[in-house]
Structures are given as C-alpha cells and as structure tokens.
C-alpha cells in the first residue's frame, strides 16, 4: 500500500509548497508512489485523522499550530520539515529578534489586535522531533525529491552537516570576502550547491547554521575582514533567530 502523505502549511508564504508544484516534470511519477491524502495548498479537503508521512512547511505561531504539531508527531510515522521557517524558524522567527511583544507593538502599534492564541514563532524542529529536514528558503526541488525518496525507503537523514565553502569552490566562485563583502557560507549548512553565490549574491544563511561550523573561528574570519561580531550576527539573524547563535 502506498504511504499516505499529508502536506501541512503553518506560518509561511507557502513558497516551499509552491516549489513542490514546480517539480512538474516528475510530480506525476512521485505522486504514483504515494497516496497524497491532503495538500493544504493544492486541495480543499480536510486533513485526515490517519496518515503515514507528514510534510510540514512553516513556523508555529499559534497555540493551534503547537497542538497540531504534537498531534502530527503522534500520528505520522515520518515527519519531514521543509523550508527555513520549519527548520530554523526562518523569516517567521525574526519576530523574536526584538522580543515578540516589543516587535508586535512596533509593527501594529499599541492598539494592535492580538491574534487568538498567538505564541512566539517557533520552528517545527524546535517543537517536535522530526525525521528529515529539507532546509532552505525556498527548498530545492531536487533535494526535496531526494529526501522524500530516502524517507519512503526508510533511509536515514543525510542532510549535509558541514558549511558550504567547499561547494562554492567546486563552482569556481571568487570568494566574497576577497571582494570585501560579508558572506555567511562559511557557517551555513551546505546542500544548495552554493546557488546564490554562483548567481552573484552572498549567502544569507537560509539553510541554517551548519552543525559542524566552527563559530569562534568564523568570528575571527568576520573580524579579520572588517565585520564585527554584532554585524555578522545581525546578518545571521535573518534566518536564524530561533536558536541562539554565539560567535
């Protein structure tokens, strides 16, 4: 029996679900392998009570999200968190940077109406244990397919753990630090083939801090190139406010 799959969107711009629709060339082949019982973006039905695989996009920003995530964890055999919001908190979690209350007041004013059950934005990964992650803003379709394939075959999560400079070197990019620009590739989780840098834009860290990054050593690199730790951290906070990053 094909595994029953649900795709759930929490607080996000649904960009990663849109990326999933961009698999066009292979979407039908992939759909042939799974029983897609619910896809928030693409279907109007209700989420079923039982399923095997849950693909979750977005960050939890309400109590309802938190409850849903816990229920998902109890129900699904496999949970896959996709996109920066679900994996590192991403853009959603920037709200935490200045303090959630202060930030809210800053944006909506003193009299802003508080959404019911509002909680500080949290990545899926920080709320429940997940089995696989597909980091990035937005996700890479090839990586998503590869992770989904591994999940369907019960293979372990193999998301790269090292920072991405090595990948940038294989693309023969000239290092942004040599051009006097700050680039977060030196601490950011690889797996994106250094796509942004190859297109001429420094890494903004959307895949999160690499588990094997050497942050104290990176701090020295930043400082040696004229970027103090505070400035570097403010760059890092674009996608990484959900976890404390100490340089």
């Amino acid at each position: 029996m094909a595994p029953r799959v649900v795709v759930i969107g929490l607080a996000s711009d649904f960009g990663c679900q849109v990326q999933m629709t961009n698999i066009e060339d292979h979407l039908l082949e992939v759909l042939g392998l799974i029983d897609l019982t619910y896809w928030q973006l693409a279907s109007s039905g209700h989420m079923p009570d039982e399923y095997d695989v849950a693909i979750v996009e977005g960050a939890a920003t309400t109590q309802e999200h938190l409850d849903l995530l816990r229920r998902v964890r109890e129900t699904a055999g496999v949970v896959i968190a996709i996109g920066s919001c679900a994996v590192t908190g991403g853009i959603s979690a920037i709200a935490n940077a200045a303090g959630i209350e202060e930030g809210f007041a800053l944006v909506y004013g003193e009299r802003g109406r508080v959404a019911l059950g509002r909680v500080a934005p949290a990545s899926v990964v920080s709320v429940i244990d997940v089995d696989y992650i597909v980091p990035g803003c937005p996700i890479d379709t090839d990586e998503f397919l590869h992770v989904l394939s591994r999940a369907l075959h019960g293979l372990r999560d193999k998301t790269p753990r090292q920072p991405m400079c090595f990948a940038c070197k294989t693309r023969e990019n000239v290092c942004f630090f040599e051009k006097g620009q700050l680039c977060l590739g030196v601490v950011t989780r690889s797996g994106c083939h250094a796509r942004c840098v190859t297109l001429g834009r420094p890494c903004t860290g959307c895949r999160g801090i690499a588990p094997e990054a050497n942050l104290p050593a990176a701090r020295i690199v930043f400082e040696d190139h004229g970027f103090d730790a505070e400035r570097a951290l403010s760059y890092i906070s674009l996608y990484n406010t959900n976890e404390e990053v100490v340089l």
Partner: peptide
C-alpha cells in the same frame, strides 16, 4: 581551533582525490 571545517582546501587541491559515493534514484 582555527579550522572552519569547510573543506575548501581539499576542493582546490590538485592532489586531493578523496571521494564520497552516493546512489540517487
């Protein structure tokens, strides 16, 4: 303590030959 564990040295080395093998379905 200084090493960034980024692997840049191995990539640009004319004599580093280590490789990983992966199956892609």
């Amino acid at each position: 303590d200084r090493c960034l564990s980024c692997g840049a040295c191995s990539m640009v080395c004319p004599t580093c030959y280590c490789f990983d093998v992966v199956d892609r379905l």
